[in-house]
C-alpha cells in the first residue's frame, strides 16, 4: 500500500513555503512514522520548497509513502543547475542580495537535502528545469 500526496508550489509568495512540507508532516504523524523520519522528510521538503520559490518560480512536489520508505519527487521548470557538483557544495549559492536579505541563500539548500535523505538524485537541464528524487527509509 502506498499513499500519494501531490502539491503545486506557487512561486509568487515565499511566505507560503513550508505549507507542503507542513501538510506532509501532519500526514506522516497520523501514519505513526518515527519522529526522526518525519523530521528528515519535512526538513528536506522545506529546503526543496524554498529552492522552488527562490530559483524556479514554483513547481510540483509528489510524495509517496510506503511501509519501508518515503519517496519524494520535486519538479520545476526553472533555469536548471549549471554545475551540480558546485551547487552541492556547502555555502555555494547563486541567490542574489534580495534573497539573502530575507535570510535565505546561505548555500545550504541542496547540501541539507542530501544530509537529511538516504537517497538523492538530481536531473537537471539548463533552461528546461530540475527534478530531484529523494528517499528517506523507514527503518
Amino acid at each position: 500500500m502506498t499513499v500519494k500526496l501531490n502539491f503545486k508550489i506557487d512561486g509568487n509568495d515565499f511566505t507560503r513555503a513550508g505549507e507542503a512540507s507542513g501538510e506532509v508532516k501532519r500526514v506522516l504523524k497520523e501514519l505513526g512514522l518515527p519522529s526522526d523520519v518525519i523530521r528528515n522528510v519535512s526538513i528536506a521538503l522545506y529546503e526543496g520548497e524554498i529552492n522552488m520559490y527562490l530559483h524556479a518560480n514554483g513547481g510540483q512536489i509528489e510524495v509517496a509513502v510506503s511501509p519501508d520508505a518515503v519517496g519524494m519527487v520535486l519538479t520545476d521548470s526553472g533555469p536548471g543547475i549549471e554545475n551540480v557538483a558546485l551547487a552541492m557544495k556547502e555555502g555555494y549559492s547563486t541567490a542574489d542580495d534580495n534573497i539573502r536579505s530575507l535570510g535565505f541563500g546561505a548555500g545550504m539548500g541542496l547540501p541539507n537535502i542530501k544530509k537529511y535523505t538516504d537517497h538523492m538524485m538530481i536531473e537537471t537541464e539548463v533552461g528546461v528545469g530540475t527534478t530531484i528524487r529523494l528517499k528517506v527509509y523507514i527503518k
Binding site: M1, K29, E30, L31, G32, V65, S66, P67, I138
Partner: peptide
C-alpha cells in the same frame, strides 16, 4: 493522532 499502530494498517 496515529491512525493505527502499524504503518501498513495506517497507510490503508
Amino acid at each position: 493522532l496515529k491512525l493505527a499502530e502499524n504503518v501498513e494498517e495506517a497507510l490503508e
